[in-house]
Nucleic acid binder design. Sequence first.
DNA 1: GCCAACGTTGGC
DNA 2: GCCAACGTTGGC
Length: 154
Amino acid sequence: MTQYWLMKSEPDECSIDDLARLPQQTVPWTGVRNYQARNFMRDAMKVGDGVLFYHSSCAEPGIAGLAEVASGVTVDETQFDPQSPYFDPKASRDKPRWLHVHVKLRRKTRLLSLREMRSRPELASMLLLKPGSRLSITPVTPQEWQAVLALLEP
DNA sequence: GCCAACGTTGGC
DNA sequence: GCCAACGTTGGC
């Protein structure tokens, strides 16, 4: 059964337009350094799951496009690279800590801003909107997914 | 740049 | 296993 997710990306690092320019319009979702988010990728995500591509830590935070999970988990190589901002000195090749999936663009959408999302009662249940929510990957219910799609219709 | 909320670390 | 200190996130 298809599931749905919201995944945060900082546009400085990878915006929806960056994603559109990548080969296969697919990005390795490296850099996740939170166990809960990792476990979602490892234990629950399936290829083909729907993804709300969210711009965070920027002037206009919000949903910027639709994407999908394009691979199962693989080892996140950035954890071994001392030059990487995602380097984890406690990770070893024997016991990698961090994993990632690949995410493929479906389509860019209009920006559904965080402000607008907060104003919509039908989205109030979204984990992203809960006070203090910081998780970079959150599950989205089919109802929330449909509600977002409806708001993105032209 | 601020700061509240939250996760992680490490001494005990 | 507790919990204080510390670091990070991310909207504002």
